[in-house]
């Protein structure tokens, strides 16, 4: 069976939605950040797949940009989590509702 573009797109959609469900369901802020990384990573597959179809490396450049955005997001997000843990002694998002009350 030939592997077509459709296979790659469906794989990326499935992984993106897994990350989305995880982001909504999980309460541990660390795991929520990991789910965001998973969603970003699935988008990279779509870029690479269309790059391959069109025979143009432009998509690869955007994947590299996405790497940089993911790295910056992880660094800032984790620094925020450490700071929140220092002040509140928890990273459970159900306990972090000071702005809600």
């Amino acid at each position: 069976m030939e592997i077509t573009l459709t296979h790659y797109l469906v794989l990326a959609a499935a992984i993106f939605l897994t990350g989305m469900v995880g982001f909504i369901v999980r309460r541990n802020a660390l795991v929520m950040l990991m789910c965001v990384e998973l969603m970003l990573s699935s988008v990279n597959i779509v870029f690479a797949a269309f790059s391959r179809v069109h025979g143009n490396e432009g998509g690869h450049v955007f994947v590299l940009m996405n790497f940089a955005v993911a790295a910056a997001e992880a660094a800032i997000g984790l620094a925020l989590l450490v700071e929140i843990y220092r002040r509140r002694r928890t990273i459970d998002v159900d306990d972090l509702k000071a702005l809600m009350e």
């Binding site: 592997i3 990573s41 597959i45 690479a48 690869h60 994947v63």
Partner: peptide
């Protein structure tokens, strides 16, 4: 998952990625 994604990139003829 990320190492497997690297395999997917290799399949899509993107060795650098």
């Amino acid at each position: 998952a990320f190492v497997a994604a690297a395999g997917i990139f290799a399949l899509l003829s993107a060795p650098f990625l």
